[in-house]
Amino acid sequence: MAAVQVCEAEKVYIMHGVRDDLRVDGRGCEDYRHMEIETDVVSNTDGSARVKLGYTDVLVGIKAEIGKPKPAAPDEGYLEFFVDCSANATPEFEGRGGEELGSELSCTLYKVFNNVNSLELRALCIAPREHCWVLYVDVLLLQCDGNLFDAISIAIKAALFNTRIPKVTITEGEEGGAELELSDDPYDCVRLNVENVPCIVTLCKIGHRHVVDATLQEKACSVAGLLVSVTHKGTITCVRKVGGGSLEPESIFEMTETGKRVGKALHAPLMKLLRDEEAQGKQRQKVGFLG
């Protein structure tokens, strides 16, 4: 992952600040940086969102394609994840440089989002064992300034909220083969229920305390962190230790509790923002990258 060099004195300064609940940029330990969210930014996707968290900048595009259900879950559709760590973010990612990080991120995202608890996968099924919707969730990393997981998860939730899947009706062929017919009405489409879609909260252990939404400098002072995915009810759906160092069981417990609290609080304002934006409908001036 893109890293910055931090000298010892700086490290000490950051660690002491965290101990006193006062971070370099003036935040408390459980505060997020300024965040900007915009949906429907790429018109040829079925759903898209862009999230800026500090200088971290991610773009998520979702495309729905018709595929075959997996044999293990014949009556469910599924999600596919791809994270493109582009050279735009940092020259280190040029060529195949970003692939490792990309696959690490996409594996985690798959675990967090592709299950019936977070999304009604059954609603994506068109005909059991025959056809289902496959949602290709493509994440494009445009700028890295720490805390990628949280930014990506919020962008994915926003993009899923924005996703409109064309309506498909099944007509029975004469020999039992189902024929798919797409509705020609562009307004005739299916929305996804994103209520239970979790958000990821990454906590970084710095000294004896932990912080949410760590910047790259803070991250450089941390040996290990914990990733927690939390739904709007406060249910934890996934916990994963990240980073090279080790953590004590007690601090894992503490961090999980913090993650639960912070994560739960994240959902309500996010949903409000998304609904407000949608309410503006066609009148909304799209900003995208021009703002």
Binding site: Y55, D57, N88, L142, D145, G288, F289, L290, G291
Partner: peptide, 29 residues
Amino acid sequence: VQARMGVFTQADGSAYIEQGNTKALAVVY
């Protein structure tokens, strides 16, 4: 055609352009 310069802060130079529905981002290091 719509365009903006200085879209990103980390890169030495960056720009975004829309030519109709074709949209491109460029970054210079």
